[in-house]
Amino acid sequence: MTRYILRRLLQAIPLLFVISLVLFFLMQNMGDPIATMGGRNVTRSADRERLKRQLGLDKPIIVQYLYWLAGNDWAKADLDGDGIAETPGTRRGVLRGDFGLSLVNKKPVTQVIWERLPNTLLLMLTAEAMILIFALLIGIYSALKQYSTFDNIITTITFLFYSMPVFFFALVTMYIFAVNFKKWGLPYLPTVGMFEPTAGKTPLQVAWHMVLPTATLSFGFIAGYSRYIRSAMLEAMGQDYVRTAKAKGLPKPEIVYIHALKNAALPIVTIIALDLPFLLGGAIVTERIFGWPGMGRLFLDHVSRGDTPVVMGILMMIAVAVVIFQLIADILYAWLDPRIRYT
């Protein structure tokens, strides 16, 4: 097993390398870094040239990539922008944990991301917990009550939700639970931010502000997974081994939750582990609508301003997360299914 994990991690290195290379090239046309950095006051071409040299943007792109990857403290850099590279560089490169400085606020990229990451994780983990609980409950229950009224209603609703774009769900729930509840004098849900500035960042405030974003982030996944769990459970319940378990006189809960679920869980666990990083995708739209100060909004803000270092940092972080979760999915699968052994 250890050897398998090591081999997979080794295989991931060239993959991440290629991804970073392609993304880095894509970034070059994303905007004008000089404008991003200096605002409107850098209009003189001499100033532009100087800034470019200071940032190392005058170098060929492949050299820029090399510096991004491995740093430039081993090469001479032109820090004062006079056209002569005389001082050793200060960047240590991604490989040594230095993602550079944000062009927008000149803070280290890692710090910029680090400030937002907890907010997104809070939202994501809560959403994932909701997704698991509701998807399992709905999926198993409607499998057990196949073709019942409940099952038919749930099937229709899940199909509806599965097809509904995130923003539409967000806008409709906002309109009902925030705008109209307020109008009708009912306790209404907040729509923007993490807490009321007047009330301060108390856990209760944050929890209250999380209701709508969490629902928005999880509804589509709940719908998708519960459909999936339903069909996986139905398939498992139709298998011979379930009949055997029944023939043994086992009580129904034991048949459903041990014999059937343990088999049905195999594909479910894999899919959930693979999808987890993709919750971030939904987080972009959700965080934008609800003004949630997380990574999704950070990404959006910095993409539109062409802040290459931050955008690269976020994308590489996600890429690593996806690769790791793919590995976790495989390991979980092997752990749950005795028929599979990785060597």
Binding site: L15, V18, L23, M30, F278, L280, G281, I284, A319
Partner: peptide, 21 residues
């Protein structure tokens, strides 16, 4: 490997970067 590389970045992120590009 190329296919994998494209899948590794969640689509919406890639879309935004490319749309901006």
């Amino acid at each position: 490997r190329i296919t994998e590389a494209v899948i590794v970045i969640p689509q919406i992120f890639l879309l935004l970067v490319m749309a901006k590009y």
